[in-house]
Design a binder for these strands. Structure first.
Lengths: 211, 211
DNA sequence: ACAGACTATGTCAGTGACTGACATTCGTCA
DNA sequence: TGACGAATGTCAGTCACTGACATAGTCTGT
């Protein structure tokens, strides 16, 4: 009954928007259920549409691809990440800003453990899902980091390579944490794994050649 | 029994292997020509197969996807990258090792300017190509960097996040250089852009909060 | 040289993701 | 209440990609 006022989606108000939102959510849940029980490639978009009690055409009016359906619940995470960046104090070092801001992503993983685990496992098992995760989902976060870092440093993100490099390092840290997380079946706290991995960004220059 | 040759190039000898190699090359060239003149999405795999004078089925026996066809000439680049790593002196700092090894990729871009420019431009314009570039091509290089760095540091690349973080930073630097390169229409020397971007990896820890 | 094995290719039919066009239902607002 | 518009259903179509089977060209041992 509590409406989310101004998230990315929101469903402002009115029955029409509520129904649209409901259809969308039904599709996401139907897809997750079928993907989890049957597998990604083994599930057809028609199966998903039927389970959600809509036509296949409606499915593709809500989601551009089958892969996007799997990550349909991650829309507001991007916005949360943006807000996490502006919430950091201005005197914090840029490495700490990134590290702490990324913990909002990590926190989401712990808060939605089941769903995130499914997404990560399907990405590890299915090439097209892996590609979508990297090229769409993660790339979106990365752009958010780049923009935030560039703004903090007051530099042009096209001319100065540092924002994108730092963002790439941060995303790699998240991937490491993700792999470690799934290796343990999601039993560990993702936030701790991510924090450890993110902290290692600062160690890069300190690594010396093996004596 | 003759085993596959060690290089990914293949087609060591024998008319059969030579013909197979020829068919593969014809497909790559036909695809590049059509992609360049007509666009990626506007070109069908049947068009490509006909221009290469083979059946569509044969095309998909040589390449798993339409996207892979565009990057079909990059097989040996991965091997060259591996060799570039082992060629670096052991007393070099790991940041310098990565920076210098990556220049073999950069050198390839300058040596095959036309083709690389087409690939980058199509990736910028077409989502499915962008996804393939990131999730397949670049991910392959990244794994190569991770393995090489982990070996240099003598650490486990699963437990220690630093190899993957460094690899992610390096790939981001390459992407920055690529963007700058295409922004100038490929007139600049890619190697110089890449070197500058890669050198910025060491500056990450030095960035202080503004003022 | 020749038979048999092997392999690349052609042909054909099929699946499934995705799309355009058009009709219909349903919420909204004057 | 009636008109407008947005969401959906239906249908037909395109195209990437695949399995099955037949054929032709290449290799190998005798």
């Amino acid at each position: 009954m509590l409406e989310q006022p101004t998230t990315s989606e929101g469903a402002d108000d009115g029955r029409r928007d509520r129904k649209k939102r409901r259809t969308r959510d039904d599709l996401i849940e139907a897809a997750a259920a079928l993907f989890a029980s049957t597998g990604f490639d083994e599930t057809t978009t028609t199966d998903i549409a039927e389970l959600a009690d809509v036509s296949q055409r409606t499915l593709f009016r809500h989601f551009p691809t089958k892969e996007a359906l799997l990550y349909g619940d991650m829309d507001d995470l991007q916005l949360a990440l943006r807000e996490a960046f502006v919430a950091r104090p201005t005197n914090e070092s840029i490495l700490d800003v990134v590290r702490h801001a990324m913990l909002c992503v990590a926190g989401d993983f712990d808060a939605n453990r089941e769903r995130r685990l499914l997404q990560v496992q399907l990405a590890a098992a299915t090439p097209s899902v892996s590609a979508h995760s990297r090229a769409v989902v993660q790339a979106q976060w990365e752009r958010e980091i780049i923009a935030a870092v560039a703004k903090r440093l007051d530099v042009d993100p096209v001319a100065d390579p540092r924002p994108e490099i730092l963002a790439g390092a941060a995303m790699s840290a998240i991937r490491v944490a993700t792999r470690q997380w799934t290796a343990g079946g999601g039993t560990a706290v993702f936030g701790e794994l991510a924090d450890t991995a993110l902290a290692a960004i600062g160690d890069l220059g300190m690594v010396e050649p093996s004596s």
